[in-house]
Simulated scan of single mutants.
Amino acid sequence: MFIISLTYIVPLEELDQHMPAHVKYLKKYYKKNIFVASGRKVPRSVGIILALAGSEEEVREIISEDPFYKLELAEFDITHFLTSQFHPDLEDLLKGK
């Protein structure tokens, strides 16, 4: 599993102009069972995505499609961690990766 942190580097008003495209991108990877959860930190300065992927390379390829990445609206940081415990409903998703 990977934690993708997006640190916003533009004013929120500019970020919000591209939010519909970003949400469309997120939905694409939810449908592919790669993204598990996403949201913003409080206060709103960072976005977080939990992703199931086979490798960091795969995550980087996926990130490259994000409008926030393409338009340089955020800096991206990837943390890879091994899930030793998880909610039982995630078991099928985790076994698939």
Rank of each mutant, 00 (worst) to 15 (best):
S45V: 12
K24I: 09
P43L: 01
S45N: 13
V42Q: 14
D66V: 01
F86G: 12
P11H: 03
S55L: 02
S45H: 11
L26I: 14
S55H: 02
D16L: 11
T7P: 05
H80Q: 12
D89A: 08
I9D: 15
K70A: 03
V42C: 09
E57Y: 09
K27E: 14
T7C: 08
Y69A: 11
S55V: 01
L52I: 13
K41S: 06
K70R: 07
D16F: 12
F68N: 02
V23Y: 15
V59Y: 00
Y25I: 01
P11W: 02
L93S: 13
V10R: 08
H22M: 02
K27H: 14
M1F: 08
P20V: 01
E57A: 11
K31N: 09
L12T: 06
E13D: 13
H22R: 02
E14K: 15
L50K: 03
V42A: 10
M19S: 09
V46K: 14
E14F: 13
L90K: 14
D92M: 11
E14T: 05
E65Y: 07
K32R: 14
K70Q: 12
Q85V: 15
K95E: 15
V46D: 10
K70N: 04
L6V: 04
A21G: 07
G39F: 01
E75Y: 04
S45W: 07
Y69P: 06
D66Y: 03
Y8K: 08
M1L: 12
I9W: 03
K32N: 05
K97D: 06
S38Q: 11
F81Q: 06
S5A: 14
L71E: 06
R44Y: 10
K97Y: 13
G96C: 07
E57N: 08
V42T: 13
K95T: 10
F68W: 05
I9T: 15
P20I: 01
M19R: 13
Y29I: 03
N33W: 04
Y29N: 04
L94K: 07
K24C: 06
L52S: 11
F86A: 15
V10M: 05
I4W: 01
F68T: 02
Q85F: 15
K95M: 08
D77I: 05
R44D: 11
S38A: 11
L12E: 12
A53W: 00
A51V: 00
E14A: 06
P11A: 02
R40E: 12
F81A: 08
K97N: 12
I63R: 03
P20W: 03
F86P: 06
K27V: 08
A37W: 01
L90D: 09
I9R: 13
K28V: 09
V42M: 13
E56G: 02
P43I: 00
L52V: 12
D89C: 07
V59G: 00
K41F: 15
M19F: 08
A53C: 02
E61S: 11
L90E: 07
E65M: 05
M1Y: 12
D77Q: 12
Y30N: 07
L82C: 07
S64D: 04
L90G: 08
F2G: 00
L6A: 05
F2E: 01
Y8I: 06
F2S: 00
H18G: 07
I62W: 02
G47W: 01
I62M: 04
L93K: 15
E57H: 07
A37R: 04
V59Q: 00
K41Y: 15
E13S: 11
E65I: 04
A37H: 05
K31E: 14
L90H: 13
D89S: 10
L26C: 11
F2T: 00
